[in-house]
Structures are given as C-alpha cells and as structure tokens.
Amino acid sequence: MRYFIVSGEKSGDMHAANLVKSILSQDSDAEIVGWGGEAMEAAGAKILKNYRELAFMGFWEVIKNLPTILGFLKEIKVQITDFQPDVLVFVDYAGFNLKVAKWAKSQNLKTAFYIAPKAWAWQKNRVYTIKKYIDELLVIFPFEKAFFGNFGISTTYVGNPLLDQMSGFEANPDFLKDQNLGKKPIIALLPGSRSQEVKNMLGLMQTLAETKKEFDWVVAGVSSLPNELYAFENLKVVKDQTYDLLKNATAAIVTSGTATLETALMAVPQVVVYKTSVFSYWIAKSVVNIPYISLVNLIGEKEIVKELIQGDYNLEKVEFELNKLLPGNNLREKQLTDYSVLKSTIGEKGASDKAAAVILKLAKK
C-alpha cells in the first residue's frame, strides 16, 4: 500500500514518525512519503518537504505568509497526484491539512486525520469540513470521541501518542556530567519549537535567570532552529534532549503546547506561559471558547498548572508562581498529585499501533 503523510511541525513529525513505524510493522510492503522532518525520515518515510518551511504561527503571521502558503498548497497537490496514495494521512496542523483534504476528496482520495483539529476549542464549524472531507478521524483525548461522534463523523479514540513516544525514552545516566550540570538545582525552560515562540519567550526567562542565580537555567533547544536564537547570557542550552533535561529538573517554565503534557507526564512541576503578537492574541481571544490553553488543564478539566498569558507573562508573576513550585511548598505536592490522576485519565500506550490499524483498513477498502 502507498501512504502519503502530512505533518507540519515538530510535534507532528514526532507522532508521525511513530505512526510510520507502526504502519511498516503492520504492512511490510508499505511505501510511505510525505511532508515532515528528520524523525519521519529516520522511521522510514521519504520526505518531500521539511516541516521547518511551514512553521508559521498566529493569525497575523499566516496572513503575512499567505502567498508562500498558497504556493505550498499547489506544490503538495502535484506531489500527491504524482504519488497516487492508497490513503492520505494528515497529522495535526489543521489549517493547512484541511485545505488539502478538501482538494483530496475532489480527487476521490481516501483520507484519515490523526490528532484531530481542536474544533471543541475554537472554529467549531470545522466539524462540518471534517465530516465532508475526512473518512476516518483518529482522536487522542477521551472526550473527543463523543464530541465528533455527535456530528456523525467516523471517529476512533486511539489514546495519546505521547505515551508511545515517552515509553521509548531511556535516560542518559551521564546527562548531568556531560552538560556540566548538577551543582545547582535545575529550572528547565521549554520555549517552544518555532522560531517565533523562542523569540517571544526567552528574553524574559533570561531576565529571570539573572535575578535567581541559585539555579541553573537550562533551555530545551531544538537542532532545527539556529543557534543565535538561543544566544542569551546565563542560559545554558541543551538541544534535542528535552526528556533528559526534565528528568533532572526541579521545576519548569513551559510555553503552552504539547510540551506542557510532556512535562506533566515526566512529573515536573511547571508554570505555563504564552505570548504572541497583539493582533494574533486579539483574534484568538475573540474566537477561542475554552477556559484554559494548556493541555494539562484541558484534560484535567481544572487548573492544575498556572497559566500566564500575554500581559501576565511578566517577571513578577513568573517568579511568584515559580517560587510556589519549589521543594517544600504545598502547591508543588498538589500539582504532582494532580499529574498522577491526569496520567490515569490518558490511559496506556499503543496509540500509534491503533491508528495504523485503522489507516491500513481504510487503505484496503
């Protein structure tokens, strides 16, 4: 069978990579191409475009880059037509992928969407687009099955793929020695995987590091971004070793996204932060209809971690919230207890295998 997989960012590449491995384990003759990154390629897919070229975030940023995005849409349509997949698989990255899905249905291609668009949070009208253009929807949160199922969408709850990713983690026993760390408690800084996020988040973290020198402030960097983005005094950067960093951290400051859930599953107390352009934030405020932005709070359906968004992301508030999470504080213990409940809610590993089984069944129809 022939599979064309589209992922548009680092987390999607990670989950798509595990999906590729599962597809190959269930279909030894599988031929897999698509858009993604190094993880997908290492898993066995042929990459036609790297996700780094697609990393636009925020409403204003998308508008500014619209001609480029339209060019990408034209390009991927040609590639899909040339490859003629038995099934087209979208992984997250809803804005772009749903546009491709609409065209794909006009070409009578079978479509599956893994890690569903968050229509329950904003742009609820997307459910009608999904129903019209997606054959199989594979969701990763328990409440999503009922939400999308109520609209008559063929929906399968497969579990959360982060558990698959994290189950393969083997801690480096020499991490602290290799990074010349361990003399001070570590505060992990997870500023995101996109250049715009890093630019928006790291400056304040650097200022905080200057005022609290009793800690080692260590940035979870990614090798796909240039070194100059991380060029801050008092901040040590460790690239592509986020789980080792979290395993050795006392607490963390985390940009909202998948990393908040990873941090919770690694049992590291955290403050969640987020800042974007004024225009993008204003648009988001007007359309988003959820009480929280972090996955930890959304899944837990309560405030497990403190969220400091936009103007609240300032030195005074971050320091205040961080201090409450240090050893000896009651909030730290409460957050760790809530993490345990959260983990039981998510379930067991195996999302990639379950998703692959549904996709294979669709491809063979």
Rank of each mutant, 00 (worst) to 15 (best):
R2D: 04
Y3R: 06
G8V: 03
E9M: 06
A30E: 09
E38L: 13
A39I: 09
G44Q: 11
A45R: 06
I47L: 06
Y51L: 10
R52W: 01
L54K: 09
L54N: 05
A55K: 11
F56N: 04
M57K: 11
F59H: 01
W60I: 13
V62R: 00
L66G: 03
P67N: 06
Q79Y: 05
I80M: 02
F83V: 07
V87K: 01
L88I: 09
Y93A: 04
K110Q: 07
Y114V: 02
A116K: 02
K118P: 10
W120L: 04
K124A: 09
K124W: 00
N125A: 05
V127S: 02
I130P: 03
E136M: 01
L137C: 09
L137R: 04
L138I: 12
N150D: 15
S154L: 10
T156M: 08
V158K: 03
L162I: 13
S167D: 15
Q179K: 15
I187F: 08
P191H: 09
S193V: 06
R194V: 12
R194F: 11
E197R: 07
M201A: 04
T207R: 14
T211K: 14
K213D: 09
K213A: 06
W217C: 00
G221E: 04
V222G: 11
L225W: 13
E228F: 15
L229Q: 11
Y230S: 10
F232D: 03
Y243E: 15
Y243D: 14
D244F: 11
L245M: 12
L245Y: 14
L246Q: 10
A251I: 08
T255L: 13
S256I: 07
S256V: 12
T263Y: 08
Q270S: 13
Y274N: 02
S280M: 03
Y281V: 00
Y281R: 08
Y292I: 02
N297E: 06
E303S: 14
Q310P: 03
K317D: 00
K324M: 07
P327D: 04
K334L: 11
K334D: 13
Q335M: 14
Y339P: 08
V341Q: 11
T345L: 14
A351S: 13
D353C: 01
A355E: 03
V358A: 09
I359E: 05
I359Q: 07
A363H: 02
K365A: 04
